[in-house]
């Protein structure tokens, strides 16, 4: 299952709940406002790092750039992807879940 998160974890609990309920080896994609969760040193970084031990976590590059967040400063090991890869990910997974 691919979990889609598009809300800032500082405003909504979508990311928290997703990480609580995603099964091992599921994938999580951070895009739109959710990319702010990717910043290293943020209050969210630690739990994201922990989640990456059991989940594949991706972040959408264009949304990082749009918000002036440099790729060099995101949590290590996060995979930055483009729109084509976004589409490919949705095809690779049988199901997707949008956490509103």
């Amino acid at each position: 299952m691919l979990h889609l998160i598009n809300k800032s974890p500082f405003e909504r609990n979508a990311l928290d709940s997703c990480l609580r309920l995603a099964q091992d080896s599921h994938a999580v994609l951070l895009f739109e406002d959710a990319v702010v969760a990717a910043m290293d040193g943020s209050a969210q970084a630690e739990c994201l790092q922990e989640a990456m031990n059991r989940l594949s976590v991706y972040v959408l590059g264009p949304d990082l750039e749009a918000r002036g967040l440099p790729k060099e400063r995101i949590v290590e090991g996060l995979e930055v992807i483009d729109y084509d890869r976004f589409v490919a990910l949705t095809c690779e997974h049988d199901t997707t879940q949008s956490w509103l």
Partner: peptide, 15 residues
């Protein structure tokens, strides 16, 4: 248990 149930679905609708 909820995580398990969620993972079993063919389609998940979020509201």
């Amino acid at each position: 248990e909820l995580a398990q149930l969620m993972a079993e679905q063919d389609v998940v609708f979020s509201f």
